[in-house]
Design a protein around this nucleic acid. Structure first.
Lengths: 338, 338
DNA sequence: GAACCGAATGGAACCGGTTCCAATTAGAGC
DNA sequence: GCTCTAATTGGAACCGGTTCCATTCGGTTC
């Protein structure tokens, strides 16, 4: 009773299994009398088809894999929310592969397309090598990158060079010349996140355009956490000639900077300007000036791209570039005159 | 080449499919010479077994379903992190079923056990009715509740009555007598979250034990969001005889209260004490006094319970109760003397 | 009334694993 | 050398769907 099969239904309705399958899949070639009989039998037996068997014979899993590093970080949560929203209208479920080590990253990249667990892959921030990208393409696994890019794969990119430029330029516009930058790990990062290099690039470009010399002492990098950012900001702010403004790679790190300022009794924004990046939900509450990247939307667009690619596998790689926006709140102001 | 099957491997190795299967599953009854041959063939064909086929014949999905309302709320993210950590050591994946409407809740409760998509179910905060619980039991679906309870199902409960009591008692200990409470929706909530009733109960008990009369005007309820909490706090604080302390159902709501205080120019904690609930990550940064419930741990313990139940289905329902802890920071203090 | 056609239907084969039973083989014991 | 037993091994049957091919049947057409 618990688990009736399609054969039980067929027997009870006095038809063949093919017919039952046709009724289930809304094939038109079934007379309405037969359809009626089958539906009655289905109801009587409280039958529901086994998705696993369906998948096996269809060769599709109706599941999407999402590979995300540190999926509990606020920015990934926002992106996932977008993915969830886009997928909730479809027939697809998603499985999260959380990545916190390089070994795990490599395992995921290698195993997930091979095991036929998923019909498509959404990869966040992690950038595949050329080899890996070709491997995805050749294995026929529809793959979409969010927050990174590769010329052979569809992707939703955030223009982080522009974002970094925007943040720095905002500080310059306010009159700052001594602008610190607290970054995520640049070289030593095991993952080589693309946005890390890009925002740094934007920072350098804005300085150069304004004719401000880059002062290496003002650039600090460390693991992405409030605690570490607080430590680094403390270092910056206790330099003999400290910066008057700090651009932080992420809102989370900006909060660490704010804390350091508080520790040292510096008033924000009067004595120190701080700008973050991401515009995560809590940023508004804390009045943080920041660069908004459309996190939620990046998830939605990425998922849509992937669904399109699954239903139409031959399409050429698409690129979506999402802009960034300056959100001015209360942590930036002109520097004090000296 | 892309997708070799077990039969290809068997042919190439010159053995039967049963033997290949035995090698794959580390059955002992294979001579080492044969094992060698098979492994060579596997390597040559770059073969990896299809999990779907495996699931069909095994009748197991190696996947766990997690039903979570509003999974992007910080407290659920923390719990999920615990689940992910516990599951990452196992062979199981997990699928998130996000619930934001009652219809969706009912769908999930009804369909997920029936479709054989998952081997076990982890349900957060949502409380099954007796009927639903029996349905889970009868369908043989191992089910564990986190942050709610039912006598027929294993669960990880947070002692929210004690937590509500603790929060209120802390304010009383400081000398407050006029204590407001801003709650999640109590009656009208479509989900009937258990913790909502429990924390309120704790609040009432603490007041009663201290001989403080409950003053209905001091109790407000509204949708769980910062914005709504800010509005409600504003109402409370502009009463003719406003409370000197406010207990908020969640940290998120406490932040709304803090904002309302700021709007009205009230100093915290001098003129208003605020205590939250959850101890989400950002609470420490904002120096919020709060009640810590062990969110991450609740996820870990729940997942462990479920894995145990899957491997040993006959066990009786277990109960784990996690305590709550008062975390004193800088948003509570004795009231001003009048 | 015969020939023909299309729609509806039944059911075998298939997806790719696991498992169980029967058959083979090797080795031990006498 | 023969028998018996245990260890290996091969492969059919099965899990529960889908699909395709063959068949049946009712209705046209001449």
């Amino acid at each position: 009773m618990a688990n009736a099969t399609i054969r039980d239904v067929a027997k009870r309705a006095g038809v063949g299994v093919g017919t039952v399958s046709r009724v289930l899949n809304d094939s038109t070639a079934v007379s309405s009398a037969t359809r009626q009989k089958v539906q009655t039998a289905i109801a009587e037996l409280n039958y529901s088809p086994s998705p696993i068997a369906r998948r096996l014979s269809l060769g599709r899993t109706m599941t999407i894999g999402v590979i995300a590093p540190f999926f509990i970080r606020p920015s990934y949560v926002e992106r996932l929310r977008g993915v969830e929203a886009a997928l909730s209208n479809s027939e697809y479920d998603f499985i999260i592969y959380n990545v916190e080590t390089v070994a795990r990253r490599n395992d995921c990249f290698h195993d997930v397309p091979r095991q036929e667990r998923v019909d498509g892959l959404l990869i966040m921030t992690l950038t595949p090598t050329d080899e890996e990208a070709d491997y995805f393409v050749q294995s026929g696994m529809p793959t979409v990158l969010i927050d990174s890019s590769h010329r052979h794969l569809s992707h939703v990119m955030i223009d982080d060079v522009a974002g970094g430029y925007q943040a720095t330029q905002h500080l310059i516009d306010l009159g700052h010349r001594k602008i610190g930058y607290i970054s995520d790990l640049l070289q030593e990062s095991p993952f080589g996140f693309r946005p890390v290099a890009n925002r740094y690039e934007g920072y350098l470009q804005a300085l150069a355009h304004a004719g401000i010399e880059f002062y290496p002492e003002y650039h600090r990098q460390g693991e992405l956490s409030r605690r570490e950012a607080r430590r680094l900001a403390h270092e910056l702010l206790t330099l003999p000639d400290p910066p008057t403004a700090i651009f932080a790679y992420s809102d989370t790190q900006a909060f660490g900077v704010l804390r350091a300022a508080q520790d040292l009794g510096l008033k924000v924004p009067e004595q120190l300007s701080v700008i973050g990046y991401d515009d995560i939900e809590i940023a508004e509450f804390l009045h943080l000036t920041t660069i908004r990247q459309h996190l939620y939307e990046s998830g939605v667009r990425g998922a849509e791209l992937l669904l399109g690619e699954i239903s139409n596998p031959l399409s050429r790689p698409q690129e979506i570039v999402l802009p960034t926006t300056l959100v001015e709140r209360d942590t930036t102001a002109p520097p004090l005159l000296c």
